[in-house]
Design a protein around this nucleic acid. Structure first.
Length: 158
DNA sequence: GCCAACGTTGGC
DNA sequence: GCCAACGTTGGC
């Protein structure tokens, strides 16, 4: 049973893992590990192959959306939770009862310019996004098709 | 089940 | 570096 493609926004700190870093990976694909928030996890479990992602740079000089990525593998256990030497280790998650999940994300398209958080706050079409809500800290969140296309359009315009 | 303490996120 | 907002933890 297929469903229409959905749209998401995923945050990453560029000093840790940037959109360019994703592009540089083999097949421009990497697993999105380290999510340790239940709501974000639940969103990741809703992701389907082919869903598109706004790649957002957070905690940096110019926070904003820098590119588009695509979900290429649906949720599977996040093995970093099983590894005591990982910063994402969670002793309550084991291979027999995984608590945390990840997806595989593929670099798809760079925006011609960053669509900044500041700019989005002033735009009625996208100002309702969860991203804009005060105190909202989710690193993975759904966006509507309209929001996705508005932001992509801005980033691709001259 | 309450809630204070703590750690984290992330814009500024 | 600051700090507001939030989620989680754990004592009781």
């Amino acid at each position: 049973m297929s469903r229409p493609g959905r749209y998401w926004l995923m945050k990453s700190e560029p000093s840790v893992f940037s959109f360019d870093d994703l592009k540089a990976r083999p097949r421009s694909t990497d697993h999105w590990d380290g999510v340790r928030n239940y709501q974000a996890r639940n969103y990741m479990r809703d992701m389907k192959k082919g869903d598109l992602v706004l790649f957002y740079h957070s905690n940096c000089d110019t926070p904003g959306v820098v590119g588009i990525a695509e979900i290429v593998r649906e949720a599977y256990p996040d093995h970093t939770a099983f590894d005591p030497s990982s910063r994402y280790y969670d002793p309550k998650s084991g291979p027999d009862n995984p608590r945390w999940f990840m997806v595989d994300v593929k670099w798809k398209e760079a925006l011609r310019r960053t669509v900044t958080l500041r700019e989005m706050r002033g735009l009625q079409e996208v100002s309702g996004m969860k991203l804009m809500q005060k105190g909202q800290r989710l690193s993975v969140m759904p966006v509507t098709k309209d929001e996705f296309e508005t932001i992509r359009g801005l980033g691709m315009a001259h």
